[in-house]
Nucleic acid binder design. Sequence first.
DNA 1: CTGTTAGCGCCTTCAC
DNA 2: GTGAAGGCGCTAACAG
Lengths: 339, 339
Amino acid sequence: MKTKITISDIAKELGIAPATVSRALSNHPEISAATKKKVKAVAERMNYSPNKMASSLRSGKTKLIGVLIPTAEHLFFGSVIHGISNLASQQGYDVLIYQSNESEEFEKKGIKTFINARVDGILVSISKNTTDYSHFELVKEKNIPIAFFDRTNDNLGISSVSIDDYLGAYLATESLIKSRYNRIAHISGPQHSKAFAERVRGYQAALHQYNIPFDNNFIYNGDISIEAGRKGVQHFLNLENKPDAIFAVEDFTALGALKELKEIGVKVPEEFGIIGFCNDLFGEHITPSLSTVDQKTVQMGEEAFNLIYELISKKGEKTNSQKRVLTPTLILRESSKKN
Amino acid sequence: MKTKITISDIAKELGIAPATVSRALSNHPEISAATKKKVKAVAERMNYSPNKMASSLRSGKTKLIGVLIPTAEHLFFGSVIHGISNLASQQGYDVLIYQSNESEEFEKKGIKTFINARVDGILVSISKNTTDYSHFELVKEKNIPIAFFDRTNDNLGISSVSIDDYLGAYLATESLIKSRYNRIAHISGPQHSKAFAERVRGYQAALHQYNIPFDNNFIYNGDISIEAGRKGVQHFLNLENKPDAIFAVEDFTALGALKELKEIGVKVPEEFGIIGFCNDLFGEHITPSLSTVDQKTVQMGEEAFNLIYELISKKGEKTNSQKRVLTPTLILRESSKKN
DNA sequence: CTGTTAGCGCCTTCAC
DNA sequence: GTGAAGGCGCTAACAG
């Protein structure tokens, strides 16, 4: 079997011009149905496969989307990629994956890789350790469509898709209030991250809305980790005026809090309520099962693809950057059910 | 800023030939150090980025690896991709991702996509629902290096990387025996899958090794699901001669068994031992924490990349297909600790 | 409706 | 050590 069949081979076989074959295969309207049929039949028979490199080089479009994530080793990003990749396939786009491993250096390499590959668009979730953003500026200068998802930055004039952290936090806190907890504390994440700062704001807004006075001791500056959850609980239980519920910045933090409370002998949810954020897989299966806020990962991926797809279509037109914000969903389970 | 700088632009700038620029940039030995330095400086200054499409078209090598997975929405595959992608980056390969979503049709589309993209090599984890393998035969005919990982098929003469399911099952079962459970049952997965059949074999081998008679009622034909775990427990507890431990084919199955036992009031691990397979993330955090077998996902990805890398290097040479088998690791937690 | 021509950007002979 | 020329496979512009 000859392995490299080109349109010229097909053209020779049929005694027509390569250009005609090209047009027939891409369903050009000015080619007769009869010719198209013949060409396609021969292409099929000869097991022809179009050379995407050649086509891209000539047409200037690669039908490639570069997706830059911190790591594929978190289900969160896998789910987002699931959403991106499925829509991409539908629209005839291929997906190039690059991991930054939370390093600015690798992130820059990823961007360079995408530029060299001449991707039609780039989707990025920014690395935790990125402080210099020149590589994103470069992409903009080169006029390559780019958008952020989840880990965004609003100062670069780059469009983004993210979840409404403020609302999620508000809903989580409100749900604790509605479950008749009335001294609600928060274990927060690093405040230089916009998402985590927003969660603090949402938490405070809910308290305010329900006329619950805000106590500064009720915010413990933690992180996304089991350890931070444990430390938060220890901090809170040392207060004179102890809380009776915690909204944790993330599910693992909530898990740590839960474990600590269990060990100390405080009953969840009867004596103490817990709610997390993320809807990580384990939450459903621990005891008590964890109430949380779902982040719509697959939908985020789909929205991210739609966004970059539009940006690619509108390339050249001057458009303002836009922020697409997804609405999180409350998932109430046992850990916050007081009755 | 001019967005499309080519080697000709650099050549003009320096008053030399494009060919010289090309050679200088790729460190051709016959180019003088002085010229190389000049060329690289100008390339840098002009923000030149090599066009991978053009280079691939000309050289016939794309430095692309196609990775076909059932879904990115399982941490298992994310981890494997993590391993593949990190090594790939190191070796200058880009990674193209395609999801089959467990559909044979999409799997075939993915293969076609990779062929059209002229990837240098293909890595596949076969979809559950694939029964026709002609697309893999096609890849072989086209002489494109291909290898399977995790979900393999031994009848196509295609190399593979997988975990030793037999050994994993043996170790899991043996660990229950050593924990002084003596009536050990197994909830199995669909037996048309080689991996799950191997786990049954490993289970039986361990029983045999320790002179424990094998009871046919002690195998419940289940699946990878919480539901199957629950059903398995119901089946076993209805037997006259009840088991006192279960080796489950997968962690979710083990989880189902655990939940059912808890609800019925059977104490784990005191009265009943449980061990799973997979080392999914949740196992560590449930109560009791789940003993299991780790599948070395990241390592599997790395090994898969190494394999395809070698196949690419040896392309043309006649080589026999090879099976690389990883050694699983036992993770003992609370669910199988009788004391 | 189809053929001819001319590159896309790069690399690789073959010259000198 | 460097330059000139040709072509990888495809498509778009221009003819007819």
